[in-house]
């Protein structure tokens, strides 16, 4: 479960923030997860419930997906990422390292592989709130 490692990364980061902000308790953490990475949100949620302790014991984690959109740097065409257009092996590779999409995905308009991720590339922590 690669998702477990991502959940650990959230816990490490929020724990550090809680120390820095001198929170007695972390009440809520909002996390956005880009769909390009095809992370299983249920596994992330489960991992977080297993990993949270100390100041994070009662933390509510809100995990929300973000649609992945790509933009061609050559013709500026913008399109939505669609996992169903990829074969299983390629989808798995992008799941681990999303940038390898540059090896497999082409702009539907001009065929270039020089594109950027407009949104939905990865996971990030949007906000952390707590009680001092």
């Amino acid at each position: 479960m690669h998702e477990w490692a991502l959940a650990e990364a959230i816990i490490y980061t929020v724990t550090e923030i809680a120390e820095r902000e001198q929170f007695k308790e972390v009440s809520r953490v909002n996390v956005k997860v880009g769909e390009l990475q095809q992370v299983d949100l249920e596994i992330i949620k489960f991992a977080l419930t297993q990993l949270k302790r100390g100041k994070l014991k009662n933390t509510e984690f809100r995990i929300e997906p973000v649609r992945a959109r790509l933009k061609c740097r050559i013709c500026e065409y913008v399109w939505d990422f669609n996992k169903n257009e990829l074969d299983e092996e390629v989808a798995e590779a992008i799941h681990f390292v999303p940038e390898v999409a540059h090896s497999f995905i082409k702009c539907p308009n001009c065929g270039a592989q020089d594109f950027e991720f407009v949104e939905g590339r990865r996971m990030y922590i949007e906000s952390v709130s707590g009680v001092r």
């Binding site: 991502l6 092996e89 590779a93 390292v97 940038e99």
Partner: peptide, 25 residues
Amino acid sequence: YFSKDKALSLRGQDFSDSFIEILAI
């Protein structure tokens, strides 16, 4: 393992994101 030995052209931020991703997991 992930690029399947196909060509992979990465601009600066894409390199950094791949690097961070692999190290983080």
